[in-house]
């Protein structure tokens, strides 16, 4: 086993362990922190694969954005320091079943796909290539999904402003 493999196994183990801890922890804040480390492990695997852009985006969006928001909302909830109640057996059973089904789905699709070795080393994708693909309307371009997502985000922003806006007392 080479050093590179060792790094992969460490990262994979870390991701899996923290993933399991996230769902089994009964303290919600700890669960969120475990989730953070799980996501960081995934980012580490991206770095290991030389997908540096994806890794950085993983950290910015998931670790730096979403987990911070989760932690922040835990701060604002009442009695979040207390231990969560032990879930009922039926709930445990169904969530385990759901997790198993998802795992099966992923495994089936992974095993049905034959990974042909191209013989080429994975080339480092440059940032400008990613940028051009993201905004190109042509073949293999992502301009439409990009725009659709931006419209979705715009709608969410406007919705937030509408909820947060204060009606003036004389407006009625």
């Amino acid at each position: 086993m080479s050093g590179s493999d060792l790094v992969f196994y460490i990262l994979a183990l870390m991701t899996l362990c923290f993933g399991v801890l996230t769902v089994t922890s009964r303290q919600i804040f700890r669960a969120a922190v475990y989730l953070l480390f799980c996501l960081l492990g995934v980012a580490g695997i991206y770095f290991w694969l030389n997908y540096q852009f994806l890794a950085a985006v993983q950290i910015v969006v998931y670790a730096g954005g979403i987990v911070v928001l989760i932690l922040f909302s835990i701060f604002l909830t009442q009695q979040s320091g207390e231990k969560l109640p032990v879930p009922a057996v039926s709930r445990k059973f169904f969530s385990a079943l759901a997790a198993f089904c998802a795992l099966a789905l992923v495994l089936v699709s992974v095993f049905r796909f034959s990974f042909a070795e191209s013989g080429k080393r994975s080339a480092l994708v440059s940032m400008s290539q990613i940028g051009e693909k993201m905004l190109s309307p042509g073949e293999g371009g992502y301009a439409l999904p990009f725009e659709v997502i931006s419209v979705l985000l715009l709608a969410a922003l406007i919705g937030c402003i509408v909820i947060a806006i204060k009606t003036k007392p004389d407006a009625r």
Binding site: A55, V57, I59, V60
Partner: peptide, 15 residues
């Protein structure tokens, strides 16, 4: 991705 890496890591400072 040097600069992006720095902004990604500095977003972890708050954690």
């Amino acid at each position: 991705i040097g600069v992006l890496y720095v902004s990604a890591m500095s977003s972890l400072m708050v954690i």
